[in-house]
């Protein structure tokens, strides 16, 4: 399954079923990972919805965290 992650197309084998599996495969759910937020198809998804969010071919997943700025 191909998904667009942070704007880049990535191939997932085996195909993930839900957003939790996508984030886990990418390493974002490691215990020591800092806090981040997720937009799935340009919509905010809270952590308690990762498992319930089914992913489909071509969907977009954006993972964002803090940067400095003016």
């Amino acid at each position: 399954m191909q998904l667009k992650v942070n704007g880049e197309t990535k191939n997932f084998v085996p195909a993930p079923v839900n957003l939790e599996q996508v984030l886990d495969t990418l390493g974002y759910l490691q215990e020591d990972a800092p806090r981040f937020v997720v937009a799935y198809n340009q919509t905010l998804v809270n952590p308690d919805q990762y498992l319930k969010t089914t992913v489909y071919e071509g969907d977009s997943v954006d993972v964002l965290s803090v940067i400095t700025g003016g």
């Binding site: 942070n6 704007g7 990418l26 390493g27 974002y28 490691q30 020591d32 990972a33 800092p34 981040f36 937020v37 954006d62 993972v63 964002l64 965290s65 803090v66 940067i67 400095t68 700025g69 003016g70």
Partner: peptide, 17 residues
């Protein structure tokens, strides 16, 4: 103090912490 958000890889995220 202003700050912002950016799309980040796992490696970039680790630097934040």
């Amino acid at each position: 103090i202003t700050l912002s958000l950016k799309k980040q890889t796992v490696e970039e995220l680790k630097q934040v912490k």
